[in-house]
């Protein structure tokens, strides 16, 4: 029987130059339900499918607010995500306390990147079994970052991670050029459509299994829309708006000439 001798810990390379434990951790991300994130020039959204283990149980939370300007979507081990979420929350609070400003999103993402990398280089440690989409707004506008258990972080225009997320990514790639100019509502609809792509045959988006999170960059008055998670009946209208989408429909007029709205 084949036995892999190079996956007992995360400090040993295989002769091919791979670190199996880190790769297995990346597999854990694919066990989680799908989450999608998209950034436009004014907003950044996260949408997620929540799972319930059985009919009687509640749905596992997928979106977490970190600070007023940042939120995350998780795919993988929820408990590992909570550790990272707590860490990010502490860092953001600390930064706000010492500088009186919101932490730049890239700085925050770099911090969890370095934190996760340590786990891939020390004997006896285990990489985080969770992938994150970090959405936030700062002085540079809206941002979307991907985070992987390896410690890799990367800024994205739109991305999806989790089970069957390839379908969502294909949708996002197809509509990539439209996102930058999208207004708030269009961006959410794009997110939900991408999410639908990833659903298994007989599943649908419902008010119970869908989460939407959104943050808006500073408008002309300098007012930032804080990151907020919408669940339950709050997302009903959005789900409705993408309910009987014809597959080929040209994505809601793509927003040109429309005034951008900040509030729903």
């Amino acid at each position: 029987m084949f036995r892999n001798n190079y996956d007992n810990d995360s400090v040993t390379f295989s002769p091919q130059g791979r670190i199996f434990q880190v790769e297995y951790a990346a597999e854990a991300v694919k066990q989680g339900s799908v989450v999608v994130g998209i950034a436009s020039k004014t907003h950044v959204v996260l949408v997620a499918i929540k799972r319930n283990a059985e009919e009687l149980s509640s749905y596992q939370k997928k979106l977490f607010p970190i600070d007023e300007h940042v939120g995350i979507a998780i795919a993988g081990l929820t408990s590992d995500a909570r550790v990272l979420s707590n860490f990010m929350k502490q860092q953001c609070l600390g930064h706000r306390l010492t500088y009186g400003r919101s932490m730049p999103v890239r700085t925050l993402v770099d911090m969890i990147g370095s934190k996760a990398q340590i786990n891939t280089q020390h004997y006896g440690k285990r990489p985080y079994g969770v992938g994150l989409l970090v959405a936030g707004v700062d002085d540079h506008g809206p941002h979307l970052f991907e985070f992987q258990p390896s410690g890799m972080t990367e800024e994205m225009v739109a991305f999806a991670i989790g089970a069957r997320s390839q379908m969502a990514r294909t949708y996002l790639e197809k509509h990539l050029d439209k996102f930058a100019e999208c207004d708030r509502e269009e961006l959410i609809r794009h997110g939900l459509r991408a999410l639908k792509e990833s659903l298994v045959q007989d599943r649908e988006l419902t008010v119970d299994n869908t989460s939407v999170g959104i943050a808006g960059a500073a408008d002309k008055a300098g007012k930032v829309e804080p990151f907020k998670v919408y669940d339950g009946q709050e997302v009903a209208a959005w789900i409705e708006s993408v309910a009987d989408d014809k597959e080929a429909a040209p994505a809601g007029g793509s927003g040109e000439g429309e005034t951008m709205e900040v509030d729903p």
């Binding site: 800024e155 994205m156 930058a180």
Partner: peptide, 11 residues
């Protein structure tokens, strides 16, 4: 680090 079509640098 800005992605080419990234929304950053709006302001």
């Amino acid at each position: 680090g800005d992605v080419s079509s990234s929304p950053s640098s709006t302001s």
